[in-house]
Computed example of a mutant assay.
Amino acid sequence: MVRSKGKRVALYLRVSTDGQTTENQRLELAGIAERSGWQVVEVYEDHAVSGAKGRDKRPAFDRLCKDATRRRFDLVAAWSVDRLGRSLQDLLGFLNELHALGVDLYLHQQAIDTTTPSGKAMFQMMGVFAEFERAMIRERVNAGLARARAKGKRLGRPPVEENVHQAVKEARAEGRSVRSIAAELKLGVGTVHRILTSPDASGQAIARR
């Protein structure tokens, strides 16, 4: 594969636990940069940080994104896709951000290099499959809801029985606090509040204290 020469590259390294090291990632990516004629301008390293965490919990990744906006480099290189994030959606979002800034992406383990036509095409296909996956999830959810309704199942918050409503309102009329009512009847505080603020037979809600 012929790669672009003379590019300024940022290396992103990440490991999830203190017992791991980024050294192998660093050596491999630095070697690739040297062989490809890339100039390493910065190494961004998140140590003992899960890829499932958001950008605000990954300081080096956050700094990488900000420096991309400042055009500090032309290319971001990482050992593997899972170093950047834990989902295809995260990766595509990051790629779209880089693309808008005119910055390319190289992933060693997946042999993806968006400086090449084949690399760009592969990411376009990943975007198609990601949209297909979202559509399939929506379809399965909607089909499940339709089956539940067809079987007569009630969807949403389960109703509270009328005798429980009555017990809550009687206890409140006696001057009991919301928390004591919830504890005695083994209900959530929110459920008690909902019962007390729902209209009674006369159409009036029982005021909270």
Score class of each variant (00 low, 15 high):
residue 35 R to M: 14
residue 36 S to Q: 13
residue 36 S to L: 04
residue 36 S to D: 12
residue 36 S to W: 09
residue 37 G to A: 06
residue 37 G to M: 10
residue 38 W to V: 02
residue 39 Q to V: 12
residue 40 V to W: 03
residue 40 V to E: 02
residue 40 V to N: 04
residue 41 V to T: 08
residue 41 V to W: 08
residue 42 E to W: 07
residue 42 E to P: 02
residue 42 E to Y: 07
residue 43 V to W: 08
residue 43 V to R: 06
residue 45 E to G: 08
residue 45 E to L: 09
residue 45 E to H: 12
residue 46 D to L: 07
residue 47 H to R: 14
residue 47 H to G: 13
residue 48 A to S: 09
residue 49 V to W: 01
residue 49 V to F: 02
residue 50 S to K: 07
residue 50 S to C: 04
residue 51 G to M: 06
residue 52 A to Q: 09
residue 53 K to G: 04
residue 53 K to M: 10
residue 54 G to Y: 06
residue 54 G to E: 09
residue 55 R to Q: 14
residue 55 R to S: 15
residue 56 D to H: 12
residue 56 D to Y: 11
residue 56 D to L: 06
residue 57 K to P: 02
residue 60 A to R: 12
residue 60 A to L: 08
residue 61 F to H: 01
residue 62 D to I: 05
residue 62 D to M: 11
residue 63 R to H: 11
residue 63 R to K: 13
residue 64 L to K: 00
residue 64 L to V: 05
residue 65 C to R: 12
residue 66 K to T: 15
residue 66 K to R: 15
residue 67 D to T: 07
residue 67 D to R: 10
residue 67 D to S: 05
residue 67 D to E: 13
residue 68 A to H: 03
residue 68 A to D: 04
residue 69 T to S: 10
residue 69 T to E: 14
residue 69 T to G: 14
residue 71 R to G: 05
residue 72 R to Q: 12
residue 73 F to Y: 13
residue 73 F to Q: 04
residue 74 D to N: 05
residue 74 D to F: 07
residue 74 D to E: 01
residue 75 L to E: 04
residue 75 L to A: 10
residue 76 V to T: 03
residue 77 A to M: 09
residue 77 A to W: 11
residue 78 A to M: 07
residue 78 A to F: 09
residue 80 S to N: 05
residue 80 S to P: 01
residue 80 S to Y: 00
residue 80 S to K: 11
residue 80 S to V: 09
residue 80 S to E: 05
residue 81 V to M: 15
residue 81 V to C: 14
residue 81 V to D: 12
residue 82 D to R: 01
residue 82 D to C: 07
residue 82 D to W: 04
residue 83 R to Y: 02
residue 83 R to P: 00
residue 84 L to S: 04
residue 84 L to C: 03
residue 84 L to R: 05
residue 85 G to M: 00
residue 85 G to A: 01
residue 85 G to N: 02
residue 86 R to E: 01
residue 86 R to L: 00
residue 87 S to D: 07
residue 89 Q to M: 12
residue 89 Q to H: 15
residue 89 Q to W: 09
residue 90 D to H: 14
residue 90 D to Y: 13
residue 91 L to D: 05
residue 91 L to I: 05
residue 93 G to W: 10
residue 94 F to W: 05
residue 94 F to R: 09
residue 95 L to E: 14
residue 95 L to T: 15
residue 96 N to V: 13
residue 96 N to H: 15
residue 96 N to L: 14
residue 96 N to S: 14
residue 97 E to Y: 15
residue 97 E to L: 13
residue 98 L to R: 03
residue 98 L to E: 06
residue 99 H to Y: 10
residue 100 A to W: 08
residue 100 A to F: 06
residue 100 A to I: 03
residue 102 G to N: 05
residue 102 G to L: 00
residue 102 G to S: 00
residue 102 G to T: 05
residue 103 V to R: 04
residue 103 V to P: 02
residue 104 D to F: 04
residue 104 D to W: 00
residue 105 L to G: 01
residue 105 L to T: 08
residue 106 Y to Q: 03
residue 107 L to I: 08
residue 108 H to I: 08
residue 108 H to M: 13
residue 108 H to V: 09
residue 108 H to T: 07
residue 109 Q to A: 13
